[in-house]
Design a protein around this nucleic acid. Structure first.
Lengths: 352, 352
DNA sequence: ACGTTTTGCCAAAACGTTTAATCACAAGTC
DNA sequence: GACTTGTGATTAAACGTTTTGGCAAAACGT
């Protein structure tokens, strides 16, 4: 009952039609370049210019209602807060989405949220008629996706679907780790220690597996005395590496489970009077900003393909959406994205 | 023309109505608890249980079309990539949004994007009929908001509206810096240096202003020989602090422009054989994860209220939306959110 | 027993699009 | 000159909700 829109009288397709002296159908046709439809070049131009002059903005809600598709994709993230990495996933997803004229709707679940809360979040997205859903988790091995996700195409980031029906993408940590070992071997190192994380997550295994594979590829026998583990923080890295380095036959290089532990390794080396990289080479994993570039010497490490996983997710999602309702799919193996090693200054040739 | 939805026959409000033996009107009324409407307790229960059994999910597009509101708010971010901080803004906004039953649609502009690209992004959100828009920038002093933002309530994060019409929120860097100085003064320090950033951004000024105010409050005269500047990275902090510390009358504490520079300060101190914090206290700014907690000794610093700004933004936006169309507002002063100092281990009493 | 109020419910019109189905009319075709 | 064919546009029916304005029946007051 209050006065209507004194501010900006929203202009709809009808207004354009009226101003251009055609029907709304025609306006819709020309503005969307609807195929199999005929309109003279003259009226096309007229409609377009009128639309521009009036400042027409289509109402995507209305369009979505009619076309049964929202051009939105939902990103369900699990604790974006804990890891700065998550930002890069969002960025990758966002940019790929923009490329397809889609927009991203984001909902964040707390890590400790129950299954019901998570399902409620999925429902919230589905109510919004998203065309697809990305479920991004911190690195879990397997997860059973809320069954509401079955209502709509979905992909998984950082986890495998227990039922094996939803496509998933993961970082190829093992290969990255193996490459890193190869780099060290190439620099002449043979006594390469591994400072592992003491808590068990899939990443742990991948990195350890890659470390061992790297050794094997180089024909270096495994030496369990060179493998130690600690809390996956700077303090843990310090303690672990202190122990590894404080021996007569100390390693010439240490592969740390992550960059934070590598920071601890730097300190351990320093306290023992060892210089990095001259006396001992140190490498990390994660390429965690801003650590890796800020420590001295700058840390050689392995980057995780967060951006790429985000982009991959919306790319395959759009493929799924297009092929949807005709062919259905069963996800075979998860997609593994490469983890490139980024070379900085913490590795030196082993001249011993 | 392919077979219709063999998978999941979407259930709409009509299906619920039919199954419950009532009209869609009634279903709508009970499901929304529409006020000033009368329905017997019996039918209410029946409708609700039928809806649950059928697994009814309302179509928010349709609802939005009718109610002229989408319950979505758009977050326009400028280069979420560069700063890990951005993630916390998103998180704060997201959680506050969830609290109000809103969902966040995110679009990211590149920092180097032109004004047109930025306006296109704003339009994309408006087409989606978002109820409001948050424009989050990296810390700029003033910005002229795309005029499409006038079509809908908007708030600014990290910048001021040049026209002074859009409410804005900023971190109160000056007070945070002053508090930090007060902490140092309280520990007995009087020769407190400031390692400034050499590039000019609003944050620079705020922190410097706060530093000076802190000194003044303590009755310590300003000494320009204690103020130096360098690149706002670890390397710059190293160079700057090396110079500050390598004097006979060296400061007993250094306030670094940010945590990365503080990392450099640690290295400078170490190379000069000075222990932190025993020989020199060092503080930073930003509370940047994971640096601040990972360095040794852990860094005392000031946290930026990113989460809080995100939450503030959607909170005031919802207020704006509710009061909209009735009262219009003119933003007075920007809101300043406190930057709490977080005490760790890099400050020691000055016993000299 | 008769008006009046209250209670419980419903029909139908929006909301702004897209799209299937037609339609008028001019131009070819034999 | 009667048929077909092509061209450029239109009419009207969706899409799934909310909401306005009523209407019948039950309850109530006298």
């Amino acid at each position: 009952m209050p006065d209507e829109e004194v501010v900006v009288p929203k202009v709809g397709i009808r207004d354009v039609a009226r101003a251009a002296g055609v029907s709304v159908t025609t306006v819709s046709h020309v503005l969307n370049d609807t195929p199999h439809t005929r309109t003279s070049e003259a009226t096309r131009d007229r409609v377009r210019s009128v639309a521009r002059d009036l400042g027409y903005t289509p109402n995507r809600l209305a369009r979505g209602l009619r076309t049964r598709s929202s051009d939105m994709i939902g990103l369900l993230t699990e604790e974006i807060a804990t890891t700065p990495h998550a930002g890069r996933i969002i960025l990758g997803a966002q940019e790929e989405a923009s490329r397809h004229n889609l927009t991203l709707a984001i909902i964040n679940s707390h890590l400790d949220a129950g299954a019901d809360a998570r399902r409620a979040d999925a429902r919230a997205l589905i109510e919004r008629q998203v065309d697809g859903i990305i479920y991004a988790t911190v690195f879990h091995h397997e997860v059973s996706v809320p069954r509401e996700l079955r209502a709509v195409p979905a992909v998984l980031i950082g986890a495998l679907d227990r039922q094996g029906v939803v496509p998933a993408v993961l970082p190829d940590e093992a290969s990255g780790a193996a490459d890193l070992v190869a780099l060290l071997v190439g620099a002449g190192h043979r006594r390469i220690a591994f400072a592992d994380s003491s808590i068990e997550v899939p990443a742990t295994q991948g990195r350890l597996v890659g470390y061992l594979r790297g050794l094997e590829d180089a024909g270096i026998p495994r030496d369990d005395r060179l493998i130690a583990s600690g809390e996956s923080e700077a303090a843990g890295g310090y303690a672990t590496c202190l122990e590894l380095l404080d021996r007569a036959d100390r390693p010439t290089a240490i592969f740390c489970y992550n960059d934070r532990m590598a920071m601890g390794a730097y300190r351990a080396a320093q306290e023992l009077g060892l210089r990095v990289p001259d006396d001992v080479s140190i490498v990390g994993f994660d390429d965690q900003a801003p650590i890796a570039a800020s420590v001295h010497p700058a840390l050689t490490t392995v980057a995780l393909p967060h951006y790429e996983m985000g982009a991959w997710a919306v790319a395959t999602l759009t493929r799924l959406i297009q092929s949807s309702s005709t062919s259905w799919y069963r996800s075979t193996h998860p997609t593994l994205l490469p983890c490139p090693v980024v070379v900085r200054e913490s590795v030196a040739p082993n001249n011993k």
